[in-house]
Amino acid sequence: MKLTVNGNEVEVTSEADTPLLWVLRDELNLVGTKFGCGIAQCGACTVHLDGVAIRSCVTPVAAVANKDIQTIEGQATETGLSPVQQAWLETDVAQCGYCQSGQIMAATALLAQNANPSDPEIDAAMAGNICRCGTYPRIRKAVHLAAALIAEEQSA
């Protein structure tokens, strides 16, 4: 089966019912995407499928062949971190950091749809991403900063 991950075409051999999460982690060694619950409850495994945030732990690999899959590893470019990553770093969001790949992917997808989300919109869009360390206040702050960075980038 062929997959397109972060713009690269790769061949994988996992069984068709294997969740994308485990193909990424165990077969492709892209371990930035995390396992937290396995039942679409925590968001640690969030990746983008054709630009939309999905839970890779409940997405069979067979369902994503020939689609554009983006993971945390594909967010930075040669010119550096993505605006969302920059905002996360600057706001010092992470504590243990385990949820943050998923948070960043969720925030990136949100900002692609809504360039300037309000707090309630951020809350609603990211309610599915659990952070056990409780970095929520900084997540809200970082999403606003990321929105500003993206706006700046676009006006430049």
Binding site: R25, D26, N29, L30, V31, G32, T33, K34, F35, T71, I72, E73, Q75, A76, L81, Q85, W88, L89, D92, V93, A94, Q95, G97, Y98, Q100, S101, I104
Partner: peptide, 26 residues
């Protein structure tokens, strides 16, 4: 800011669950 913060935004921070050793069984 957090000492090990950079690896926690680009996915490169290595947690126990991420470690892969040659021949390792799960």
């Amino acid at each position: 800011r957090r000492y090990e913060g950079a690896g926690k935004v680009d996915g490169s921070a290595e947690f126990g669950i991420d470690i892969k050793l040659p021949g390792m069984l799960y």
